[in-house]
Computed example of a mutant assay.
Amino acid sequence: MSRSMYYYAYKKDDNAIISKLMDLAERYPTRGFQTYYGKIRLEGIVWNRKRVLRVYRNINLKLRTKRKRRIPSRIKEKLQVPGSINDTWSIELASLLLRGYE
């Protein structure tokens, strides 16, 4: 490791970003990073997206991603074979006939 890298200190202050993100988190608690960053850009503040995301993650505002719920598996049955012609109709046609549309 080089000497300059060993003694390097980050000089930029992230307090403005932290306060802005905390304010947005209070106003919109169920929103995520994309919404917060979009609102920051709409206000005309130009901060680097990667920097804002780093600060967002460091102050533990990250929302968990919601997983899709699994659909329960259906009972597999064999298809019914009609005994004669016009013995079974499609569901759409049967529902139209039940409503009185002929």
Results as ranks from 00 to 15, higher is better:
27 R>F: 12
79 L>Y: 05
60 N>C: 15
86 N>Y: 14
22 M>E: 15
88 T>G: 04
26 E>T: 10
26 E>N: 11
36 Y>G: 10
20 K>L: 12
84 S>D: 00
82 P>G: 08
56 Y>I: 10
95 S>A: 02
80 Q>V: 09
78 K>Q: 07
18 I>H: 05
74 R>G: 03
56 Y>S: 05
8 Y>T: 11
31 R>V: 14
46 V>R: 08
16 A>P: 06
20 K>I: 09
13 D>A: 10
38 G>I: 03
82 P>Y: 06
78 K>Y: 02
54 R>M: 13
75 I>F: 06
61 L>R: 10
61 L>P: 09
59 I>N: 07
81 V>S: 14
72 P>R: 07
16 A>R: 08
5 M>N: 01
1 M>V: 00
1 M>G: 08
25 A>Y: 15
5 M>K: 02
31 R>T: 15
73 S>Y: 04
23 D>Q: 03
98 L>R: 03
46 V>S: 08
41 R>I: 14
18 I>P: 03
7 Y>R: 14
64 R>D: 08
24 L>F: 11
72 P>F: 01
70 R>E: 11
68 K>R: 01
52 V>A: 10
49 R>C: 02
27 R>D: 07
6 Y>C: 04
58 N>E: 14
31 R>I: 10
44 G>C: 13
59 I>S: 06
99 R>D: 05
6 Y>V: 05
59 I>V: 14
81 V>L: 15
63 L>V: 14
100 G>E: 00
99 R>K: 01
34 Q>Y: 06
19 S>V: 11
60 N>P: 03
60 N>L: 14
45 I>P: 01
6 Y>R: 13
87 D>M: 05
26 E>V: 12
20 K>S: 13
10 Y>F: 02
46 V>T: 09
66 K>Q: 08
53 L>F: 05
64 R>I: 01
15 N>S: 15
66 K>N: 07
65 T>K: 13
23 D>T: 04
23 D>H: 06
39 K>M: 12
89 W>V: 02
29 P>R: 06
56 Y>T: 06
100 G>Q: 00
49 R>A: 01
9 A>P: 00
99 R>G: 01
36 Y>P: 12
31 R>G: 15
79 L>Q: 10
83 G>C: 09
62 K>Y: 13
14 D>G: 13
92 E>F: 00
32 G>S: 13
100 G>T: 01
37 Y>R: 00
39 K>Y: 02
18 I>K: 15
62 K>H: 15
101 Y>M: 02
48 N>M: 07
62 K>G: 12
61 L>N: 07
58 N>Q: 14
59 I>L: 09
86 N>D: 11
41 R>H: 11
14 D>C: 13
12 K>L: 11
33 F>E: 06
17 I>A: 10
12 K>Y: 07
13 D>G: 08
25 A>I: 04
85 I>L: 03
76 K>G: 02
62 K>L: 15
12 K>P: 06
92 E>D: 07
11 K>Q: 07
73 S>Q: 04
31 R>E: 15
12 K>S: 13
38 G>P: 03
90 S>G: 04
94 A>F: 03
50 K>G: 05
93 L>N: 07
1 M>L: 09
50 K>F: 03
101 Y>G: 00
23 D>Y: 08
35 T>H: 03
44 G>R: 11
75 I>H: 09
77 E>Y: 01
56 Y>E: 05
77 E>M: 04
63 L>I: 14
97 L>C: 05
23 D>W: 05
55 V>Q: 10
71 I>K: 08
12 K>T: 15
23 D>K: 02
101 Y>N: 04
29 P>A: 11
10 Y>K: 09
63 L>T: 12
